[in-house]
Write a protein that binds this DNA or RNA. Structure first.
Length: 639
RNA sequence: GCGCCCGUAGCUCAAUUGGAUAGAGCGACAGACUUCGAAUCUGUAGGCUGGGAGUUCGAGCCUCUCCGGGCGCACCA
């Protein structure tokens, strides 16, 4: 439909050149009886000409007769122009038109997401990030862009140092002993990290040891950094296994240690000094540090290099961001890490060169999926690019920000956390790895799978255990992914088990169920009547199949809803509001269910009705499958 | 203190970015399986869109102001 609207828009401007100056777009009338499309441009035009909107609309509507696939143009309300489409012609167009989503020329996009510190298990907050990021990747690819999904791994930061220090100082364990800890290793570290963080605040000797640990890790080539590497690798393996359960895919794991090792930072440091983008502070609280001045941000200066000479995270991140745009003149080494759920290689940055790898980086646009609390730092990164004169890279660095995930009071109580007096007075409780406070991603997925398993088994006692498990996995994933997508990104997600484990109403399983039913119509058709795909394509080609659509207004509305899917996908990307896409997919499923309930298809005896309903079901089924796929929600074999 | 975000039905959220009668789900109540699958469908109840002022053909959305809440403003990331 998005292609058709482009053509129609151009045709309208050809007829009425004045509309070219007004930024008008097609809207959808609230009441379908008004028409299928509408434009409100006459209100603007009337204002310019100091006339009545309705008068202008009447005049303009007269110029818009005989547009392609438009049956009638009329006016309504204060000055809307409404378009009524030629239903049979339009549905035929939808079913026969080649998807013309062309590859966007030379534009490569990088989406960085997940980015979990490799020192503990993933929790619900990380799931929101990964699902948003992975869905954005899928939507962009659907639009024809070349997209590289990257997962940044901060293996040399304080958080890993905490766990390393905890193993060495608290647990007194050797690297061999750590290696021997059984899975789930990420769960083990979750508790250890919380334990260590609790002790750290009150123990200055421990703080000093942790500082030493950090320096050893950054320096590399010693037993401590080896232990850090072991821990980070085991944790990343666990994170990727968790994400794989949800169909989240990556092309590249970018390790911070490699940014240091490949001298990205030292190169950037010289460049920053050369361009006077940073200054050595000689007085004040930041004396001895290299700082970046940020006159229009709340904190007027940001430390890039500490007085100890150690670079901060922001410094490394500016280097990484520059590399993404191909502006650093340096590259990583790469090696294969593993495979995603579709069997494609996941690459990792590496210490040693590897013979044959695809090109990475050199994007023209970059999305960083990071929660809203890091807005300030993301601004510093893009200001850094600007200070170096990379205007275009700065403009094309997009912070995809979203609000944090918290726990409802009730959820925190169910998990048995002792809340501080302060926390008890709040509307929700912030998830904190440091405090060990949160719902672990795998625990949540396990709970969803258990629930889905019992629902499926209850309905289908004849299924084998292996089938049950596969369906349960797929339903659990669908429930979780939809749950993470349905909320607007600027809304704090207060997590609650009752809501997340619900499979009725506006949920992933509802969408899956609808799509499964739609598909089953065609398998039943094959079984009972021997009708296969070739018969469907005959019906599509036959103009007579569409005639009944003029009377079937409810089916027509259903088809229009489906036709909007690609346009909503584009809108979701522009606004970064992926909930738009989720909601629209839900509306589609809802309308399909109503249609399914109201009209018989296989049992319909009137052939013209039956043919049209088959066409509608066919179009709906394929559109719902596309929509699910874009959200990373699997279509279960049965439910 | 400065900056950003949120406030819509009992609860959780929408509202085509300034458009036509503010919509969904959950929960509640009343119905529908001998049928292409009831994880479904149909109906009922539920609203001064936090308060006030302004902008205009038109405001849940924009401006100002007040109220309530959240998050930032490290030589952590």
């Amino acid at each position: 439909m998005i292609d058709y609207l482009k053509t129609l828009r151009q045709e309208v401007i050809n007829r009425i050149p004045a509309f070219g100056e007004i930024t008008f777009s097609f809207e959808y009338p609230p009441n379908p009886a008004f028409g299928d499309l509408s434009i409100a441009a006459c209100f603007d035009m009337a204002k310019r000409q100091k006339r009545k909107p309705r008068e202008v609309a009447l005049e303009m509507a007269a110029l818009l007769q005989g547009l392609p696939m438009v049956r009638k143009v009329d006016i309504a309300g204060g000055g809307y122009i409404n378009f009524h489409l030629d239903r049979p012609a339009f549905l035929r167009y939808l079913l026969t038109h080649e998807k013309s989503i062309a590859r966007q020329a030379d534009e490569k996009i990088i989406v960085e997401h997940t980015n979990i510190n490799p020192n503990k298990a993933a929790h619900v907050g990380h799931l929101r990030n990964a699902v948003l990021g992975d869905t954005l990747v899928r939507l962009l690819r659907h639009q024809g862009y070349e997209v590289e999904a990257q997962n940044y791994i901060d293996d040399t930061g304080v958080q890993v140092a905490d766990v390393v220090c905890a193993f060495q100082q608290i647990r007194k364990m050797t690297i061999e002993e750590v290696k021997a800890i059984p899975d789930p290793f990420d769960y083990y570290c979750w508790d250890l990290y919380a334990d260590f963080s609790g002790r750290l605040a009150a123990d200055s000797a421990l703080q000093a040891l942790r500082e030493q640990t950090l320096q050893l890790i950054e320096h590399g080539g010693n037993p401590t950094s080896e232990l850090a590497h072991l821990i980070a690798t085991r944790i990343v393996t666990a994170h990727l296994a968790t994400m794989r359960r949800l169909g989240v895919r990556y092309n590249l794991l970018a390790w911070e240690g490699d940014i240091l090792h490949r001298r990205f930072w030292t190169t950037l440091f010289s460049l920053l000094k050369e361009k006077n983008a940073i200054q050595l502070a000689t007085e004040g609280k930041n004396a001895g540090c290299w700082i970046m001045e940020l006159p229009d941000l709340p904190e007027a200066e940001k430390v890039i290099v500490r007085s100890s000479g150690v670079v901060t995270y922001v410094g490394k991140d500016i280097a990484y961001q520059m590399w993404k745009f191909g502006l650093l003149g340096l590259d990583f080494h790469y090696a294969p890490w593993g495979h995603d759920d579709e069997g494609r290689i996941i690459w990792t940055t590496a210490r040693e060169p590897h013979d044959d790898h695809p090109p990475f980086g050199r994007a023209s646009r970059v999305y960083n999926v990071i929660d809203v609390r890091q807005s300030y730092l993301q601004k510093v990164v893009s200001k850094g690019l600007l200070a170096l004169g990379f205007t275009s890279a700065c403009e094309n660095s997009i912070h995809f920000s979203y609000e944090m995930v918290a726990l409802t009071q009730q959820c925190a109580r169910e998990l048995g956390y002792d809340l501080s007096h302060e926390d008890e007075g709040r509307p929700f409780v912030e998830v904190s790895g440091r405090k060990g406070l949160g719902v672990k991603a795998d625990d949540l997925l396990n709970a969803l799978e258990r629930q889905a398993h019992s629902e499926v088994a209850g309905r289908n006692p004849q299924f084998d255990e292996s089938v049950l498990r596969d369906i349960a996995r797929s339903v659990a994933g669908g429930a979780l992914r939809y749950f993470m997508l349905k909320f607007g990104r600027s809304k704090v997600l207060a997590f609650d088990f009752r809501e997340a484990l619900n499979f009725d109403g506006e949920t992933g399983p509802y969408l899956q169920y609808s799509a499964v039913r739609a598909r089953n119509i065609f398998s039943k058709l094959r079984e009972r009547e021997g009708v296969d795909a070739s018969v469907i394509s005959e019906i599509i080609q036959d103009a007579g199949s569409y005639e009944y659509l003029n009377e079937a207004t409810d089916i027509w509305e259903l088809i229009l809803t489906a036709a909007k899917v690609d346009e909503i996908a584009a809108l979701s990307i522009v606004s970064l509001e992926l909930s738009l896409f989720a909601k629209h997919s839900y509306t589609l499923a809802q309308k399909f269910n109503a249609f399914y309930h109201k009209h018989a298809i296989l049992h319909e005896t009137d052939q013209s009705k039956k043919r049209l309903r088959l066409l509608a079901a066919h179009y709906l089924s394929s559109t719902m499958q596309t929509a699910l796929n874009l959200m990373g929600i699997e279509l279960p074999t049965r439910m």
